[in-house]
Design a protein around this nucleic acid. Sequence first.
DNA 1: ATGTTTGCTGCAACCGCTTGCGTTAGGGCA
DNA 2: TGCCCTAACGCAAGCGGTTGCAGCAAACAT
Lengths: 159, 159
Amino acid sequence: MTSPRPNPSAVIRGDALWSGIRDDLRARGLRWTPQRRTLVEVLSKTQGHVTGVQLVERCRAIDPETTPSTVYRTLDVLEDLGLIRHGHGADGREEFHVLPAAEHGHIYCHSCGGTWEIGHDQAASLLETLASEHRFTADLSHVTIAGRCAACLEAPPSA
Amino acid sequence: MTSPRPNPSAVIRGDALWSGIRDDLRARGLRWTPQRRTLVEVLSKTQGHVTGVQLVERCRAIDPETTPSTVYRTLDVLEDLGLIRHGHGADGREEFHVLPAAEHGHIYCHSCGGTWEIGHDQAASLLETLASEHRFTADLSHVTIAGRCAACLEAPPSA
DNA sequence: ATGTTTGCTGCAACCGCTTGCGTTAGGGCA
DNA sequence: TGCCCTAACGCAAGCGGTTGCAGCAAACAT
Ligand SMILES: [Mn+2]
Ligand SMILES: [Mn+2]
Ligand SMILES: [Zn+2]
Ligand SMILES: [Zn+2]
């Protein structure tokens, strides 16, 4: 859970993205273990959003011995390598973005529970304001904004 | 527990903001209990940000029997009444904003752990974009944006 | 092959917070 | 003042995720 570092080969296909990991890890003095191989296999078959719990489940389908702490620690490593990102849902729970995917944030309606994505263009003005007024480089994929959607503002559900 | 009071006007003393809560609750069919009174006393002496754990600690200083679940449930109620707001830190942990306070979001540096506040003016463009493009009314106090501060971009701490 | 280094694993405990449930007690009304 | 309804409480278990530690095993060198 540290720094963003885009993987140069990330643009290509999913397979190509994940196939280089073994060497990426070794180049950094890290190790390629059966447990990591399992998680990477799961991730390479995953698109969009996943929670940590879902990933543990899917790993267990391949290797029933899978331990949560190992999975979460490996997710941290993979995020350092720039292969995944995580954000937090409205309740603070982790959600992982599996690459390749356009970087995006989320908006969440407190009333109906609906969620939508915010693209770079929609966030551009905020990111620029942060850059100029705070000299801050924001991580859009870690952004979740809560509030009320149009439908709920007009017709508040029962409350 | 409650003994007759010779001087009915004595207890007041709290901020105008917090003094109406008892009646606010009753008007909604909710109840004014000793546990809620303790939490409200703590909140009325609190400014800025507090975590749930801190609030439980401070309640225990007044009433050692304080139970976490009761505190968190009461915090939910008070947020419904609009007396506090909560957001999530970069790690997803809850932080409560005690009113009166200008509504604001937070930015957080993944490298050095520093945090800063975003005011309404700095968020205005984002909020407007969300309103126009998604017809979404955002809750600024629930916003935490992670990224890197200027100092860390120029001189990454050891990484 | 074998040894050595040290990153990684599994475990168990823990943290912040939530939830289901049986019991207590607030508070409107007689 | 006492009754009654039900909101709120305390407890214990649970959930998502993290952490310290002792043993294990990748990786590289010999
Ligand atoms: Mn985070
Ligand atoms: Mn704040
Ligand atoms: Zn909605
Ligand atoms: Zn920083």
